[in-house]
Amino acid sequence: MTTVLHTKRLINSSTINHFKEVTIPVPWGKISGKWWGPTNEKPILCIHGFRDNCGSFDKLIPFLSQDRDISFLAIDLPGHGFSSPFPKGMIYNFMNYIILVQQIYEYFSFSKLSLLGHSLGSMISFISTILYPEKVDFLMCIDALHPLQSTVSKETVRNSIDNYMKYNKFTKEPPSYTWEEILDKMNIAYKHSLGKDSTLCLLERNIAVSKEFHGKYYFNSDPMLKVRTMFNWTQEQMIKDAATIANPIFICEAKQNYARKYRKNFYEIVNIVQKHNKDCEFHTISGTHHLHLNEPEKIGILLKKFLNKHNKSETYNLKDFSIFSSPVPSILSAQVVKHKL
């Protein structure tokens, strides 16, 4: 039987980059994403940052695939992009993301995981490797490494509970905005970390057309993501556990990132990994937090060298082609034409 795999063109790219829409079943619904490259080769699992989506890798993956066929599976985390939110009443605990990686590993029966993460996705990849080193080939971490330690106080805990009570009551459509307002809010929220094309890559899966107000859009991420959760892995414990990572690891930081106050802890962990891991690469690259999306070639050149050394092509027998579906119609096309983007 011949299976037809649907592909889609990225409307904001100067080249035609093909991927396949993916839907992975999970107990609470689905995990959506994009499968780039051959389906008969084990993919690199790509995990995006907080409030982003799998469009975060729309520019980097084609660059990495220029010279050789490499498969990538870029997912939308729960409550992000087109993936299902957690059931009403649940909060987004960091460990749920670690469990998700294990669920994907078991669903596809991968021999091992190859991981590429940005920001929160880097933290998920790093902790997944600490906990399950035998299941990981290698990992690549862009502008983050370990989870940020939270200051726990009665004020922060109370604030989290208050936010939970607030956002758990949401039943109506979220606030909607004009196209211009959407762009302004993205720029402010991301602290001007995104270029124009990069913003479009994320908006493709980050907004929906308002059903109540003509010509307006709303952000479709789960409001419960705004509830702050505490991750109690101390810096001392993190240093101890980071020393155990022997898997090949690529780490980079963006020179102009907006999380400078966390750099001291970050460098401590990097130094420990470098000291104990002979296959650790660390690079500081000029650019913002979303450098992989704004200027993929800067980091891409270094990642290509790392992949040439550590990524061994592995034949993969995909058993369920029903995970692929027709492309989701773009809601940005009209705006791209109207504003000549």
Score class of each variant (00 low, 15 high):
Thr2Leu: 13
Thr2Met: 15
Thr3Gln: 14
Thr3Trp: 14
Thr7Ile: 15
Ile11Val: 11
Ile16Tyr: 13
Ile16Pro: 06
Lys20Asp: 11
Lys20Arg: 12
Glu21Gln: 12
Thr23His: 12
Val26Trp: 00
Val26Asp: 00
Pro27Asp: 06
Pro27Phe: 06
Lys30Arg: 11
Gly33Pro: 00
Lys34Ala: 05
Pro38Asn: 09
Phe50Pro: 02
Arg51Met: 14
Lys59Ile: 05
Phe63Ser: 04
Phe63Arg: 07
Leu64Ser: 02
Ser65Asn: 08
Gln66Asn: 08
Gln66Val: 09
Ile75Arg: 00
Ser84Ala: 07
Pro85His: 15
Pro87Arg: 15
Ile91Glu: 02
Asn96Thr: 08
Tyr97Ala: 01
Ile98Asp: 01
Ile99Leu: 03
Gln103His: 10
Ile104Lys: 02
Tyr105Asn: 04
Tyr107Cys: 01
Tyr107Val: 00
Lys112Pro: 00
Leu116Tyr: 08
Gly117Val: 05
Gly117Ala: 15
Leu120His: 01
Gly121Asn: 08
Ser128Pro: 02
Ile130Met: 02
Leu131Glu: 13
Val136Ile: 07
Asp137Pro: 02
Met140Lys: 05
Ile142Phe: 04
Ala144Arg: 07
Leu145Lys: 12
Gln149Cys: 00
Ser150Ala: 10
Thr151Tyr: 02
Val152Gly: 01
Ser153Asn: 08
Lys154Trp: 15
Lys154Phe: 13
Val157Gly: 01
Arg158Pro: 02
Asn159Gly: 09
Asn163Gln: 14
Tyr164Leu: 06
Lys166Asn: 15
Asn168Tyr: 13
Lys172Cys: 15
Pro175Trp: 13
Leu183Thr: 08
Asp184Asn: 10
Lys185Asp: 13
Met186Thr: 06
Ala189Gln: 09
Ala189Ser: 13
His192Cys: 12
Lys196Met: 08
Lys196Val: 10
Ser198Lys: 06
Arg205His: 00
Arg205Cys: 00
Val209Ile: 05
Phe213Arg: 13
Tyr217Met: 09
Tyr218Ser: 12
Phe219Ser: 14
Pro223Arg: 07
Val227Ile: 14
Met230Ser: 06
Met230Phe: 04
Gln235Tyr: 11
Gln237Arg: 15
Gln237Glu: 14
Ala243Gln: 12
Ala246Thr: 07
Phe250Pro: 00
Ile251Arg: 01
Ile251Thr: 02
Ile251His: 00
Cys252Gln: 12
Gln256Met: 08
Ala259Pro: 01
Lys261Tyr: 11
Tyr262Asn: 08
Tyr262Met: 08
Asn265Ser: 10
Phe266Lys: 03
Val270Ile: 13
Ile272Arg: 01
Asn277Trp: 01
Thr284Pro: 04
Ser286Asn: 09
His289Glu: 11
Asn294Leu: 07
Glu295Val: 06
Glu295Asn: 14
Glu297Pro: 04
Lys298Glu: 08
Ile299Phe: 08
Ile299Asp: 03
Gly300Cys: 09
Ile301Val: 10
Leu302Glu: 03
Lys305Pro: 00
Leu307Arg: 12
Lys309Cys: 03
Lys309Asp: 01
Lys312His: 11
Ser313Ile: 10
Ser313Met: 12
Tyr316Thr: 05
Asn317Glu: 08
Asn317His: 10
Asp320Glu: 11
Phe324Met: 09
Pro329Tyr: 11
Ser330Gln: 04
Ser333Val: 11
Val336Ile: 14
Val337Asn: 06
His339Glu: 12
His339Val: 06
